[in-house]
Design a protein around this nucleic acid. Structure first.
Lengths: 347, 347
DNA sequence: AATTAGCACTCATCCACTGAGAGTGCTAAT
DNA sequence: ATTAGCACTCTCAGTGGATGAGTGCTAATT
């Protein structure tokens, strides 16, 4: 594609992102020093419109980008150079030192920071519990038939599950059971563990050893419990802060979708299967109907080369993509670093 | 105060709550069967305006309630009869059976349900950790110098704290330490425990027993860790759902305030010291500047007669107070019941 | 052949104006 | 004490012209 077309498209998109108003040919020549007259620009813009990258809200208005225009802008017109505020990196680094290392605080804080910097809503998906490897299980007697199972994965995700037994069970007994579980299942992925548990239960049908039987039943309970704590969201107010050009109805729909965490988990499952690195989803590229008027910029974060979760932002389609992309990228790298170095160690 | 004034005030407020439009004298006579002519109504309304309960947005518009008007309406014009949808109670009961008994899921789900029913934002404050009595502490070795402390209070609140030691520590040792902590501090309020820990540490300065010293140091770490997980919020989209008559700026401010959980904890600390039962805060009665354009309807919930937390909603000043008040009341009672009967048992 | 200047044309937006309608306050009658 | 009647006020929706930003096309220029 013609280099000059790209240049003009880029100018139009960036101007529109800044002003939220349709861009005319005269304005472009004034702000940017392209060596071209308005008339020429007009011809080029007409071409861009023909190609589907720009549109006019009405005759005799300036042009604004279509979704396809944004897409092309993101794909071809952003130079990967450091779009990023030095400040952002420094602040992120500063957080690095003060932040708690426990996974949920980590993600919550990182999400909040990302949200503040980017002025979008921040979203993070914690390391998927079901795909993690088991590191340790501890059973704590609470009261009566209630037992608290504390499950720790190798990623450092801690989850509490309150189990309800048919009959009371002493702490000593529970300790033995958890010891047994740990011996049997440590290092297993939870899905493996699940299968193994089911198999064991089947084998031990005769219940010759009540300890094993009990342990397995607990293991099964833990596996089957469906948990929805995987999603962190922050920055509801940030989206409202953007005064121009995103109507209340869109925001409403978006909020409704986002508050349904199960739905969001589905979305991220779909995204996760796409390529690695920062992914930008613009408008109707979003898998959810309710998010057709938003854009998402997301990136997976890794531990030892394996994707374990996703972090990113959601905001209006008219968004400062270069900066936001860099921020998300930087944040994901930060998380990757933290998870690979600190949480769960190197081994 | 004149009974008739109350009646008219009530009619005006309720009509305004329904329609979001200033109410005129003619409309009142049409909708409600007061045996009065518009002219009489006008006189009464003029009186109500003089008393500060009503106002006109401009001459020759109808009247709308002032904050004082809402206040009087809530105080004197609502009959305590069952304003409540039968449906709501039944649904709440249904939840009762399916809901997880673990405190955080409980509160999250209850908050969400309250939010959905009332079409306001739901807010809950979990049993204040620092004021709770310790039920059990368990220390779990995670990796290297990391130790996970699982603290359970008598209310059933479970909290995970990741501690970082100077030197590694075996699980056996940790178990002994937690055993010791449990023996020493079980049943203490956390504030008491805190003092005792500090005193102990001071007494044992010589560190003649490394176990005790270590236990106390851990206890202290746990006490000092400031945690902000006490607030549950749900239903951001509900507030936007109300199309009429609450401007974006107010919502923005409100969201910003709500997302700052530390601030919200302060607010609820202030509220908690007020009377018991459902409290309604209208507009400028709210302690926070950012919430001058909202109303809150909140109620404490108890365990064994002692206030342990708060639940309620936040929404626009123009709110269906009778229903919302009933709903909040019902929800608080429900929580009280659950906490008194189930969580943490009766003893 | 590409670029540009010039010009006619198109709409949205702003502004002033207007009439209708809803609602009020006041006064006099009931 | 209540009500009917009336003059008055103010918002709101609609109208119409002026303004101006921006376009597309054509012819001239480089």
């Amino acid at each position: 594609m013609d280099e000059r077309l790209n240049e003009i498209l880029r100018a139009v998109v960036e101007n529109y992102i800044d002003t939220a108003e349709p861009v005319g040919s005269r304005k472009l020549t004034k702000r940017y020093n392209l060596g071209l007259s308005p008339a020429t620009i007009r011809n080029i813009m007409a071409d861009l419109e023909y190609l589907g990258f720009l549109m006019q809200p009405h005759t005799s208005a300036g042009r604004m980008p279509t979704e396809k225009g944004y897409r092309h802008y993101v794909d071809c017109c952003i130079d990967d150079g450091h779009q990023l505020d030095e400040r952002f990196i420094i602040e992120t680094q500063k957080k690095l030192e003060n932040i708690e290392r426990d996974v949920s605080s980590l993600l919550e804080n990182v999400t909040r920071e990302l949200s503040k910097c980017s002025h979008q809503m921040g979203i993070a998906v914690a390391p998927r519990f079901s795909r993690s490897r088991l590191s340790r299980v501890e059973l704590i007697h609470v009261k009566g038939t209630s037992v608290l199972a504390v499950v720790i994965t190798e990623e450092g995700v801690v989850r509490n599950l309150l189990l309800d037994f048919e009959e009371p069970c002493s702490q000593q007994h529970l300790s033995k059971i958890s010891e047994y579980i740990n011996k049997e299942l440590a290092g297993c992925s939870l899905e493996d563990a699940r299968e193994r548990v089911i198999r064991k239960v089947y084998e031990e049908k005769a219940v010759y050893d009540s300890l094993v039987a009990r342990a397995m039943r607990i293991g099964r309970l833990i596996m089957e419990r469906q948990v929805e704590e995987d999603i962190y969201i922050g920055g509801y107010s940030e989206v409202l802060e953007q005064p121009n050009f995103l109507d209340l109805d869109s925001i409403k729909e978006m909020f409704r979708a986002i508050e349904d965490k199960r739905m969001m988990i589905k979305v991220f499952n779909m995204i996760e299967e796409m390529e690695s690195g920062v992914t930008v989803l613009i408008g109707s590229e979003n898998p959810l109907d309710e998010m057709q008027d938003c854009s998402m910029v997301v990136s997976p974060y890794l531990k030892k080369g394996r994707v374990i979760g996703t972090i990113g932002v959601i905001g209006p389609i008219r968004m400062h993509y270069p900066q936001v992309i860099s921020m998300v990228d930087e944040t994901a790298k930060f998380l990757t670093k933290v998870f690979s170095e600190t949480v769960g160690g190197r081994g």
